[in-house]
Design a protein around this nucleic acid. Structure first.
Length: 724
DNA sequence: AGCACGCCGACT
DNA sequence: GTCGGCGTGCTC
């Protein structure tokens, strides 16, 4: 199996003098084997380990190379030179020669194969690789950054999302910064005392959840938070309870604004030094310093945005996500993991508690409760009634009948509520962002039009023909499944102008705006009109007196499966900033009162809404009950990919359908076809339980195609977002 | 992706 | 004979 006169670092075809074994036992020599092709003998560059001995103990380093290519999604073994023995510990960053010809010898010099980054995952006594091992080039830094828990998590995430381990590690481990590493991290503080329940008392099982956490338990809960400003403190208490048990805690929020609020609440409750804030707002050095403090165990609690979901918290006791319906919880880099899914994996893997909190409720959260994986953590009706504002609706029909309203494009009831509200404080006006693409819906009852074959959304690209966005089949003689109507409509209204007109109608009142470009954090409690797009609503001192939610139809008819859920979430977010109804808080939503999300807002019942959506999705074969994946790329490439792919037996193929060409002038986004190419998207759907099989099949097909050298890649996305 | 190896046609 | 075309396959 091995010929003993070969040693890396020695000349290839050298005589006995050249190849005389240096120090090192026969078991080390056995590592270095004849290459299959014959007389070629590996040869290290002088600066690596030429002539050097191997490490005496565990001379093999198993390395994950930092190349996201799928058919390289495997470990590679390297020899550990003696002088790297001490530093080459599991978890450190290394550099290795990698590439065809890395073992080729010319003029007694090893050549080819550039240096690439990797992580050392394990030291071993021997290798199961049949060829000759190359040596580690060097250890980048002795800091161990990839522990066994993180490795297992990254592996699970890669499998779940049909991605490579290296891709996930790139999301999980921040780039190195030498200065940050050279600084010592602070001494860890002893666990704090268990916190009092505080406002968790408002939830029937709130104090019990906290007590279980503090006692070292691992409860899992979907928490429907009461509207109002209480959530940061409540999350802070959950973190404190986990810390009190001697374990760590991790909370992921959607954006820096909310991270700052939670940061403040934690500092108020626990003081400085017990938690790290991991957001993109701090620069790379500071961020890495914080990350290292967590990795080294100096800090045991983490608050952060998306990428903090991988933070290497020691002895994790609690993972929590706030507002899981916010789209920024979905990573925008391959393989596009979602914070909720990653934290679920962590909770299962590390046996820790799980808390999903939101004032609203996603279908996925409802499914966690329905499946029994998590328990509901909600307040009673009386608490909800006290905390939530009064919600009134104005339908489009009312708008049409109301003479004055038609002129001003606002129903008179909305006028009254605004006028009344301005007497006692600020009034919030929520206006949908421009660019919301409404979906085709029944003219009579507004039910979105769906394909009768696969239940995909219908569209009318040329105004005449109806086709399905999922399977591409034409829809002839469409009629509404709900009311039997045969006419469709899709209107677009200048929503922003409505708000501006509203501002002009109250000239004595200051108008402030908050939106994409300039987001206001807070406004004073004085009377003012605050016009905001969803998600940018400032907090009002003392709460808003009233809120006006305009053009609900535009939010409800977006071509997205989550349109209803999203609209409800954004309404609830805005309405949560309004005073409770006992204090006169009133919300007017301009939308069809019969629609499910509108009714859920009136009853303030986001959980019921999500439960009914979940039942519908199960019936129609939609995610998250079924698992879906999209395959996108040039038409011929998608075709070739699908030809290679071995589908799970229970998989359904929808499409392919051509992708819309992006409007000229705008820079092309990833996933959009370049000019002159026709791209297609095929959707794959499998029933519950076959998700892992689907991901594995996609990955295998991608690897097979890549190995064949094609530069023509398809984009694979598990749980695609824009499929509605 | 790179990069080398291998098995075919036109040149000194 | 042998230089070099780029098709195919490997990278510890």
């Amino acid at each position: 199996m091995s010929s003993e006169d070969e040693r890396p670092g020695e000349p290839a075809a050298g005589g006995p003098a050249d190849s005389a074994p240096a120090a090192g036992g026969p078991e080390q020599l056995a590592l270095i084997r004849e290459t299959v092709r014959g007389a070629k003998v590996p040869k290290a560059k002088p600066r690596t380990w030429r002539g050097a001995a191997l490490a005496k103990e565990l001379p093999v380093a198993r390395v994950v190379v930092n190349k996201g290519v799928l058919h390289l999604d495997q470990y590679f073994d390297y020899a550990v030179p003696e002088e790297l023995d001490a530093e080459a510990r599991p978890g450190v960053r290394v550099r290795v020669r990698f590439g065809a010809g890395a073992h080729r010898v010319r003029d007694g010099r090893r050549e080819g194969g550039g240096l690439i980054d990797g992580f050392l995952v394990e030291r071993r006594a021997d290798s199961d690789y049949g060829g000759a091992l190359a040596a580690l080039a060097y250890v980048v830094s002795p800091e161990p950054v990839l522990g066994p828990e993180m490795l297992a998590l990254a592996r699970a995430v890669a499998d779940r999302y049909a991605g490579s381990l290296a891709d996930v590690l790139q999301l999980a481990i921040p780039p190195r910064n030498g200065r940050a590493e050279s600084r010592p991290s602070p001494e860890p503080l002893p666990p704090p005392p268990a916190p009092a329940p505080g406002s968790w008392e408002r939830y029937a099982s709130g104090p019990a959840f906290l007590a279980a956490l503090a006692g070292g338990g691992a409860p899992r809960a979907v928490w429907t938070a009461l509207p109002g400003p209480g959530w940061p403190e409540e999350l802070a208490r959950a973190v404190a309870a986990a810390l009190a048990s001697g374990r760590g805690a991790l909370v992921v929020v959607p954006d820096g604004r909310r991270a700052a609020r939670l940061d403040a609440a934690l500092t108020a409750l626990l003081g400085e030094g017990r938690h790290a804030l991991l957001t993109a707002d701090s620069g790379p050095e500071k961020r890495y310093r914080q990350w290292l403090a967590v990795s080294r165990g100096s800090v045991r609690a983490v608050v952060g945005t998306r990428s903090a979901m991988f933070a290497p918290v020691r002895a994790l006791g609690l993972v929590a996500i706030w507002d899981d319906g916010d789209s920024s919880h979905s990573d925008d880099r391959a393989p596009f993991p979602h914070v909720r899914e990653v934290l679920q994996l962590r909770a299962a893997q590390e046996g820790c508690a799980f808390l999903l909190g939101s004032t609203s409720c996603t279908v996925e959260a409802a499914q966690l409760v329905e499946s029994g994986w998590a328990r509901p953590l909600a307040a009673g009706r009386e608490q909800v009634r006290r905390a939530a504002p009064l919600v009134r609706t104005v339908g489009d029909g009312d708008l049409a009948r109301d003479e004055a309203a038609r002129a001003a494009r606002l129903p008179s009831m909305a006028w009254q509520v605004v006028r009344e509200g301005l007497k006692s404080g600020p009034v919030l006006v929520q206006v949908p962002r421009r660019g919301y693409a409404p979906r085709l819906a029944c003219e009579r009852c507004r039910t979105p039009a769906r394909c009768r074959h696969c239940s995909g959304p219908l569209e009318a690209p040329d105004e005449r023909e109806l086709t399905c966005r999922w399977c591409g089949l034409g829809a002839v003689d469409w009629h509404c499944a709900e009311c039997g109507g045969t006419r469709l409509r899709a209107r677009v209204v200048g929503a922003r102008r409505t708000a501006e007109e509203l501002g002009r109608a109250f000239p004595a009142v200051p108008v402030r705006t908050s939106g994409r470009d300039h987001v206001l954090d807070a406004v004073p409690g004085r009377p003012a009109l605050v016009v905001s797009t969803p998600g940018a609503e400032p907090v009002a001192e003392g709460g808003y007196a009233a809120a006006l939610l305009l053009d609900g139809w535009a939010m409800l008819t977006r071509p997205d499966l989550r349109a209803g859920e999203d609209a409800l979430r954004r309404w609830i977010d805005a309405a949560s900033l309004v005073r409770g109804q006992d204090d006169g808080g009133t919300v007017v939503v301009v939308a069809e009162p019969t629609l499910r999300p509108v009714q859920a807002l009136v009853r303030w019942d986001p959980t019921g809404h999500a439960r009914r959506e979940l039942a519908d999705r199960a019936e129609l074969g939609f995610p998250p009950v079924s698992r879906m994946a999209s395959v996108t790329g040039r038409a011929d490439v998608v075709g070739a990919f699908m030809a290679v792919m071995r589908l799970p037996a229970d998989a359904e193929v929808l499409g392919p359908v051509p992708l819309p060409v992006p409007p000229p002038g705008r820079p092309r986004r990833p996933g959009e076809p370049p000019v002159g190419e026709v791209w297609e998207r095929t959707l794959l759907r499998v029933p519950p339980g076959s998700g892992a099989e689907l991901a594995a099949a996609l990955k295998a097909a991608q690897a097979a195609r890549l190995a064949r050298g094609g530069t023509d890649q398809v984009r694979i996305r598990i749980d695609p977002l824009d499929i509605g």
